[in-house]
Write a protein that binds this DNA or RNA. Structure first.
Lengths: 149, 149
DNA sequence: GCCGTTTGTTAGCAAGGGTAATGAGTCGTG
DNA sequence: CACGACTCATTACCCTTGCTAACAAACGGC
């Protein structure tokens, strides 16, 4: 059934890279499609999540953190601000910069997300064995580091 | 430094889902940006990869496999055909269907990809320990299954 | 032979990313 | 102290890539 020439060589870095790329791409697509539309986009969710974790940040820092160009981050922040989930306040020292922070509503939404927004993925995760979940827990951390470097 | 309320609860399914979603989203973005532009889009690459693994497939099967709607797959296949990487041939039994298959050029490109297209990711992977790579290898398989279900 | 279903396509649309250009602010250096 | 270079955020514009809706062709049960 498999052509040995073309079988993914998951043993090599390149082969692992290929498999991983496909898997990540497919899951990202799937997650995007799963968005209940009443809720946030992937990028918006990630920003709220980052703010919840790290506290107030400048748009620049958020852009770097999310591996996105500044204009894209501007758009995300604008959308979040319009929905009353974050505020922009001027930076006390540097008037070029701004500080983005969660509003109470934003904070609440983040918490709700923990219970609702990841429902689809969480449902799938629930079907996994504890061992598999442990693998994913480790993998998430590694994948994050990969994106950073 | 951390507000306990907001600390990602990676121990719960929901928390893991949140972290995973962010990590996957970010890496997908990063991978997309890495595309040398002379090469394939993420979707195109995934299709070529699938064809290399499974042999000829119908557009429908490819769409299902990649978790994409049929029209999106049509566009991907059209693009690949225009570049001479795949052929469409009529299905011998069912004249509604077509069989998509790699051309020799496509096959070559897939192989090249193993050495070039994943270069960025492979470079990052090379910096990981064997244990970490083992985790990712397992994780890739699990993530794939998640997308399927 | 006909009607419902499936397959692939076309058309049109929206989300979300990117680059280029701009304006305001900061900071080092002459 | 003034000016030039750099940084931050934003605006304007474009392109990719996914989607849904609508459709024509072909299959298949009855």
């Amino acid at each position: 059934m498999k052509n040995p020439d073309l079988t993914p060589q998951t043993r090599t870095d390149a082969g692992l890279a290929a498999v991983l790329r496909v898997a990540v791409g497919r899951l990202a697509r799937r997650l995007r499609a799963q968005r209940p539309d009443a809720s946030l986009s992937l990028g918006q969710g990630a920003v709220l999540f980052a703010l919840a974790r790290h506290g107030q940040m400048t748009p620049r820092a958020l852009a770097d953190h999310e591996k996105v160009q500044p204009p894209s981050m501007t758009r995300i922040i604008t959308a979040l601000e319009e929905r009353g989930l974050v505020t922009r306040t001027p930076h006390p020292q540097d008037r070029r910069q701004q500080l983005v922070d969660l509003t109470e509503a934003g904070r609440t939404l983040v918490r709700e997300d923990q219970h609702r927004r990841e429902a689809w993925l969480a449902r799938r995760l629930a079907e996994l064995s504890p061992q598999e979940k442990a693998v994913l827990r480790e993998a998430a951390e590694i994948l994050d580091r990969l994106s950073q470097s």
